[in-house]
Amino acid sequence: MEHTSENNGKKNFLEGGLKGAISKHHKKYLGTEIPENYFATSKLSILDKIKSEEIKVAVPPKKQLVFWMKPSFKYMAAASIILLFGLTIWMQNLETPATIHKITIDEVAYSNDVLLESLLIEESELETFTNATLFQEVVVKAELSEQKLENLILNTLIVEDSLLDDYIDDKFIETIIL
């Protein structure tokens, strides 16, 4: 231990500073005592306490955690939820405005009241709208024409068949009569 010499060489109010063993000094000036053999027993007691403290530190109580409460699982669950949430938002934003606009024009073009619907279309989209309308009309008209033609042929065939049947029936009767 480092001792100071600041007290040395001065006339002290008691005696000439710290002399001899520290315990004697305290006993002499302050009248304080300690139990016999105290420092030896105290040393053992301190060492025992340290050993028991060390045991406490070495064996921390284990916490039994259910697997879904373990930190690693919690992080994985949180990450999955965030991923799902992000995917949902991303999927919603996938349909571009151009696609939506195209569908709108097609729907309007196929509407029955073309003149009225044309008022709702912007000028820049008018050409696309006109094309869609014309295309729709051509397709519908062609379809209708084809259907008419098919009906006509079918009717003709039916009429022809009925006439033939009538003829056959008449001839058959005539033959029987004759």
Partner: peptide, 20 residues
């Protein structure tokens, strides 16, 4: 360490906390 400092620290503490 105990041998070197136990007694000194004891007296240092004793003067502050008074009783043995």
């Amino acid at each position: 360490l105990l041998d070197a400092y136990q007694e000194r620290l004891y007296w240092h503490i004793r003067k502050i906390v008074v009783t043995h």
